[in-house]
Design a protein around this nucleic acid. Structure first.
Lengths: 325, 325
DNA sequence: CTCTAATATGTAAGGGCTTACAAAGGAGAA
DNA sequence: TTCTCCTTTGTAAGCCCTTACATATTAGAG
């Protein structure tokens, strides 16, 4: 069943059918109704392929998704899909693991003919900028949760740097001066968090010590080992910030086992944080808002609207059991 | 840059270029090499739209994903995408929330022109069978985690029914005769679990009481309220099985608050289970294996291979803190 | 009842690829 | 050298739409 069949049944030309398909207003209502009726009757739906060929647009957005991210990201990707769908866009999903080549993923996605690209939940590093640039020359690229200054690349980010700086200030007020910062690698996003941490120290007139900025694998057991080692090495600390909830949680569990108690704060405010006992405090990066905003802005961009290349939304702290102590 | 440009640069016809593109063996090696070189040089990639139009295949699989599922499903969807990609297929993601019309989602997906459909993490009910049937008439449908007897619909399932029956038997051996079963609705999958539960009772010569089969919203607070109510109503139980980890976890937390301790077992063995203290026991449905198998079978099916309409893999129990007590 | 100006519809040319069929080229045999 | 018979390449007809442009219809004005 194609557009010709419909046209024939309605005794009109395919152009008229096509107009109806595209919501053109230059069709007499009676004609339109008849065509719509016949379409429905025959359960006709136009070939997205042919349409794509004709217009040059696939109405698909490629979503690049870091599959190693905290699983809290699952709802986020659903939100992205829903938002895109509301704007008439489909979601072509492409996952990338930490060990995979992000650049390759990006270029493959660009070659798939998507109209736009959304990069989400991603530990982007400097090296990825080139790939982003190339991809952006094919289709607008929207990055969630990082700040990348590349033409054609748009960013939506949550101000976690400031949030962490504020958190450090707060801890200082409570005489916590040796704050451990756990992160999971040199990504753009982590780098901002480290900056925030340093800013917090600087604002209080201190200098953050590198020995308390620790990189660790994002697995509970790795964090456990790490904390134990630090204790053995007599590295002193009186509070822990993790750049993800997973890291903070690992630390919390490790401390719990050794009978220690101190403020432990994670990032992302994932569902995990509320599931555990004691409940984990976490910096809320409003992943939902971030994702929805990103998807919406991308769609606007695709519709030819002028869109700001950088959008920030504020973060805040979800204070729970592991905060005041 | 299109196939004509490449053809011109190589001084061959587009047919030859197309043959190279499709890996036909009827091209002289020298010609092939030259064409490949020019393609690479120009960073050419064929239009998937045009290809789709030509062949009738989009090389896309529509993945229908229940966005309300436990977020443990996130890794699963990544696995699906990766498996499909290995087979040369792209993933068109479509999420559906509990309140949305699954049938509509299914038919929209079918109309998008995907070559196959994979239904995952889904609380399917009887009513969805019709939609599955319709969708299956357009493209093969693969359902993960349910057993649906509809032509054109393939299923891959984990034998949770048997696993739960076994679990109940085990609890009986430990003199637990009043096992609470928490589920989150009348889905095909839950129904099987309930059946398993009943089977377990029956095998021991008892009859399961409906008063201990409780439906509850899949939220921690709802479960908490539910358990409290049950205790107030003096419904006696000496063990809890949840059809998801979330449910079991909610029960565990509620019991903990009231100072009670008994075996609590969830389903799905999500990462959550190991993150909490005490660690949650869970029936492992091997979601990863399930997903990979489903994706692979679907691809085989798309390649015209004969595929069994129903595949089962065994479940087993991850025994943790909340099991032996 | 014309004539003009909208408005509604039709025609046909792409868009970039696949593929059946036709044609040309080359190798080996006679 | 000429004649088959493969092998390699080319031609052209789709695939199903969109859309610029041409044409037909209609409404309103005169």
């Amino acid at each position: 069943m194609n557009i010709y069949d419909i046209a024939k049944q309605c005794e009109v030309s395919i152009a008229t059918v096509s107009r109806v398909l595209n919501g053109s207003d230059k069709v007499r209502p009676a004609t339109r109704d008849k065509i719509l009726a016949v379409m429905k009757e025959n359960n006709y739906s136009p070939s997205s392929m042919a349409r794509g060929l004709g217009t040059g647009y696939t109405r698909m957005v490629g979503v690049l998704w870091d599959s190693d991210t905290d699983s809290h990201f699952a709802p986020a990707i659903a939100l992205i899909e829903q938002t895109l769908r509301q704007q008439g866009m489909s979601t072509l999903l492409r996952t990338v693991s930490a060990t995979e080549d992000k650049q390759k993923a990006l270029s493959e996605l660009a070659q798939q003919g998507v109209d736009g690209i959304l990069v989400a939940g991603f530990g982007l590093t400097d090296e990825d900028e080139a790939a982003l640039y190339t991809a952006a020359s094919r289709a607008p690229v929207m990055v969630v949760g990082a700040n990348i200054n590349v033409p054609g690349v748009y960013c939506v980010q949550c101000d976690e740097r400031r949030a962490i700086a504020g958190l450090v200030a707060d801890l200082f007020l409570r005489q916590r001066r040796n704050i451990l910062l756990l992160h999971d690698g040199d990504t753009l996003s982590n780098r901002e968090k480290v900056e925030g941490y340093r800013e917090g120290y600087a604002a209080a007139g201190y200098t953050a010590e590198d020995s308390r900025i620790i990189q660790v694998e994002p697995r509970l057991d790795a964090v456990n080992t790490c904390i134990k080692q630090l204790l053995m090495q007599r590295v002193s600390f009186d509070a822990v910030i993790g750049t993800t909830d997973m890291l903070a949680l690992g630390a919390q569990k490790a401390l719990q086992r050794t009978g220690l108690s101190m403020p432990v704060i994670g990032c992302n405010n994932s569902p995990l944080a509320q599931c555990v006992t004691p409940e984990l405090s976490s910096i809320d990066n409003h992943a939902e808002t971030l994702c929805v905003t990103a998807a919406e802005l991308l769609c606007r961009c695709l519709q030819g609207e002028e869109v700001s290349p950088y959008t920030v939304i504020p973060a805040d702290l979800a204070e729970r059991d592991t905060f005041r102590r």
